[in-house]
C-alpha cells in the first residue's frame, strides 16, 4: 500500500518534463501543422502539403530518396565486412574500435565536408594521386556521387556501431558449435551472425536513413548548390523565399513520409524503439 503511494507521488517528479514536452515538442508540432495547413491568402488549405507533388519538389524528393536508399545500402555493405574483419582480428570487444569511430566527430562536421570538397574537386587531392598513378582523373566535383560519398562518410558510424555491438554480443560458443558441426565461414555468417545482428541492423537503418534523406548541408557543399535534396528546398523556403507556409507544408509531408517508412523498419512497441536507438 505504502509502495503504491510513493510510486504515485513520484510521478510528480516528471511534471517539469511534462510541461517541457507540451511546450517544446507537442505545441511546436501543432504550430508547424497550422502553418502547413494555411494557404497563401490565409484560411484552411491543403495546397502546401500537396506541394510535395509539384515537379520541382517531387524531383528533389526522389533525389533525396535515391541518396538515402543508396547511402543506407552502401553503409550496410561497408559495415558487415568491417565487423567481420574486426572479429577476425579478435578486436570484437575492444574499446579501441569505439575510439576510432568517436574521435572524428570532435572535428566540426562542416569542416570535414569542406575537406572532402578539396579531396574530390577536379584538381584536388584524389585526382592528383590518380594522375600520379597514371590513372584517369575522376570528375567527381559537384556530382551526385560526391554527395553520396559525403553522406556515407557522415553516417557510416551510425550503421557500423549498432551492428558491431549486436555481433559482439553473440555467444562465441554458438559459433564454435556450428564450426564443430562442419559449417564453413560463410554458413556461419549466413545462419548465425547475420540473423543475430538484425536488431543492430534495424537501428542502424533508422539512424542512417532519416538524416541522410533530410540533410541539406552535405548536398550544399558537395553538390555545389546545383543538386537539391528536399532538405535544401525546405531550407530555401525559410531563408530565401520566406514562404513559411510552403516550407512548413513540405516539412510536414517529409515528416509523414519518414514516419511511414519507419513503420516498416521498427516494430510497434515503444520500448523496443527506445532501446533500438540506444
Amino acid at each position: 500500500m505504502k509502495k503504491t503511494k510513493t510510486m504515485n507521488r513520484r510521478t510528480l517528479l516528471a511534471s517539469p518534463y511534462i510541461v517541457w514536452v507540451i511546450g517544446f515538442t507537442v505545441i511546436p508540432l501543432g504550430v508547424i501543422f497550422k502553418y502547413a495547413l494555411t494557404g497563401q491568402e490565409g484560411g484552411f488549405s491543403l495546397e502546401n502539403i500537396g506541394a510535395i507533388f509539384d515537379p520541382i519538389h517531387f524531383k528533389a524528393m526522389l533525389f533525396s530518396l535515391e541518396i538515402a536508399l543508396g547511402c543506407t545500402l552502401l553503409c550496410i555493405l561497408l559495415s558487415y565486412p568491417l565487423v567481420m574483419a574486426l572479429k577476425a582480428l579478435n578486436m570484437g570487444r575492444q574499446s579501441f574500435v569505439m575510439f576510432i569511430w568517436i574521435l572524428p566527430m570532435w572535428m566540426n562536421f562542416i569542416l570535414r565536408l569542406l575537406a572532402w570538397q578539396m579531396i574530390l574537386s577536379n584538381n584536388g587531392i584524389l585526382n592528383f594521386l590518380l594522375t600520379k598513378l597514371g590513372l584517369e582523373a575522376l570528375p567527381l566535383a559537384n556530382t551526385g556521387a560526391a554527395v553520396m560519398i559525403g553522406v556515407v562518410y557522415d553516417y557510416l558510424p551510425y550503421m557500423v556501431l549498432p551492428i558491431f555491438n549486436a555481433v559482439a554480443e553473440i555467444d562465441e560458443d554458438i559459433i564454435e558449435a556450428a564450426k564443430d558441426l562442419g559449417a564453413n565461414g560463410f554458413t556461419v555468417f549466413r545462419r548465425i551472425i547475420f540473423p543475430l545482428s538484425i536488431p543492430g541492423l534495424l537501428s542502424g537503418i533508422v539512424m542512417v536513413f532519416v538524416p541522410s534523406m533530410t540533410s541539406f548541408v552535405i548536398s550544399d557543399i558537395l553538390g555545389g548548390g546545383k543538386l537539391q535534396l528536399i532538405g535544401n528546398v525546405i531550407e530555401q523556403e525559410f531563408t530565401k523565399s520566406s514562404n513559411w507556409n510552403l516550407g512548413s507544408g513540405l516539412s510536414v509531408s517529409l515528416m509523414i513520409f519518414v514516419l511511414l517508412s519507419m513503420a516498416f523498419t521498427t516494430k510497434n512497441d515503444v520500448e523496443g524503439k527506445g532501446s533500438a536507438i540506444w
Binding site: 514536452v21 504550430v31 534523406m213 533530410t214 532538405g231 513559411w244 516539412s251 524503439k273 527506445g274
Partner: peptide, 21 residues
C-alpha cells in the same frame, strides 16, 4: 516514451523549423 522519442526520430530540419515557428 513515445514523446521522448519524437525529437530523436524526427528530422533535425523539421524539429528546428517547428521550434523556430
Amino acid at each position: 516514451m513515445v514523446f521522448t522519442n519524437i525529437p530523436l526520430l524526427n528530422a533535425d530540419i523539421v524539429t528546428g523549423i517547428a521550434l523556430m515557428l
